Amino acid sequence: MEQYNLKLKVLDGLFCIFRLEPFQVIPKWATAGTFFSITRAEEELSIVCSQNSVPEDIESQMVCENGWKCLKVEGPLDFSLTGILARLSSALADAGVSIFAISTYDTDHILVKEVNLENAINALVSHGCMIQ
């Protein structure tokens, strides 16, 4: 696996991860905030969005996990680079930190539970990453 000097930034705020039925309409509140991700697959509609944008009565009506922090790999990353997610996920797996990964055209995002953030940062720094 190639080695890169990866820089990550912890995004402000907390995030929720929702699972909806694949045919459901994307809620307007899901697209509020500076970072959100929506993926529709045959089996599900997955939404990652700012926890602050979620109406209070919604969480009890949907399958969701709240309390996530997002670490963004500073990009853009060239498509020829290999092993970036493997390096990050291996470091976090070794530290016992569960992740939810999202890739975009320019970069990768790793979500970890807020209670595991300090442990995640320590693990990534010990594997040569820089954290903002």
Rank of each mutant, 00 (worst) to 15 (best):
L8H: 07
N52Q: 15
E21G: 06
F35V: 03
D78C: 05
V115Y: 03
A123P: 12
V97F: 02
D57C: 06
L6E: 00
Q61D: 02
G75Y: 04
A101W: 01
N66P: 08
T39F: 09
D106S: 13
F36G: 01
E114I: 08
A101Q: 01
P76D: 09
E21T: 07
L124Y: 08
F36I: 05
T31Y: 00
L14Y: 14
A41T: 15
Q24P: 00
P22S: 10
G83N: 14
C70S: 04
A32D: 12
A95T: 07
L6I: 14
K72H: 03
T34Y: 05
L88P: 03
S90G: 13
S103D: 03
S126L: 13
G13N: 11
A32I: 00
H127F: 09
Y4M: 09
A91G: 03
L14D: 14
I131E: 10
V25N: 09
R87M: 06
N52Y: 07
G67N: 02
M1T: 11
A41L: 09
A41N: 04
E114G: 04
E118V: 14
L14V: 07
D78Q: 08
L85N: 09
K9E: 10
I99R: 08
E118P: 07
M130R: 15
T34R: 11
E118T: 15
V10F: 04
R87G: 03
I121A: 07
D106Q: 10
L11W: 01
N122T: 14
C70L: 12
V48T: 07
V112S: 02
V112H: 05
E21V: 08
I102N: 09
A120G: 04
I84Y: 00
V25L: 13
G67A: 01
G83T: 12
R40I: 03
L6Y: 03
I84T: 05
N52H: 13
K113E: 15
K28G: 06
F35K: 01
Q3A: 11
S53Q: 06
Y105N: 08
A41Y: 04
